[in-house]
Amino acid sequence: MASVIELRDVSKTFKDVRAVKSLSADINQGEFVALLGPNGAGKTTLVEMIEGIQKPDSGQIHLFGKPWAGNEPVLRKKIGLSLQETHFIDKITVWETLDLFASFFGIGKDRCTEVLKLIRLEDKKTSYTANLSGGQRQRLALGVALLNEPELLLLDEPTTGLDPAARRDIWDILLKLKETGTTLILTTHYMEEAEFLCDRIVMMNKGEILAQGTLEDLLATHGSREQIQIQLTEAVDLQFLAGQPGFLTCHSLENKKVHTFAVTDTPGAVQILLTEVKKSGAEIRSLECTRRTLDDLFIEMTGHHLSEEA
């Protein structure tokens, strides 16, 4: 399959912060890729370098086999993008906004009508952009990105700050694009978004790729899909269970009352755990067996949540 994006040793530093550290990756045609990471992980910087808005300090970026230098007019026509929080001109209507951006691509009104329908803003056609809700404004930003029927779509946090219903609306539009063979890169710090939409998840932290692959790959390579969380009335040291049959890792809070185990065999592990707790004499306050999430994985690798600042 053809590589739509090739990143080779791409680095970018702002003042004394290394936003992206010699990062390499390939993204294939038709892939939906999520750049998942907390705020400050370098997602926006990376995406804006791919978009040709920022220049890397070193390394190479090729889109459709071409670098940005000297190919800007060609590449601009092939990509669509939305920036983190774009505002449009307040007293210009939804339709006029689409029409304006369409004119930059030399696209006619038919496509504007199509896009308007796709982003389901037909009844807001004559509303000023200032009067749109957050979800509607994000849909308009997405519509502007889709005007030129881009082969590559880059969305920077398309659903940040939206309520679940509005987020779902955006997801529905994006899922429809999957059938057309569009390549998508989106940045997000919502693991559900990455899990729901994307074939490949690239977990980023502090300008580096921590891990990447499908959801299943990630969880399988970096532990199991299941976990047990136990809360006790007294402090008990259970660290020794890590590596025992059925157990992978143990993550205990400092008070040693709350422990989280990544397990491969939940029924077996629960039995062993109950025996050990009984021996210690402590009482169980709660016991939960859950499927592990990307957030759990992220905590295990970095010590903090996806929703925290990096």
């Binding site: 808005i53 601009r76 993008l81 920036l83 929080e85 774009t86 505002h87 001109i89 930059f104 030399g106």
Partner: peptide, 13 residues
């Protein structure tokens, strides 16, 4: 400030 310049520049304008 609204990042509209940046957004428009990311088109063939």
């Amino acid at each position: 400030m609204k990042k509209l310049l940046r957004r428009m520049l990311a088109t063939p304008m």
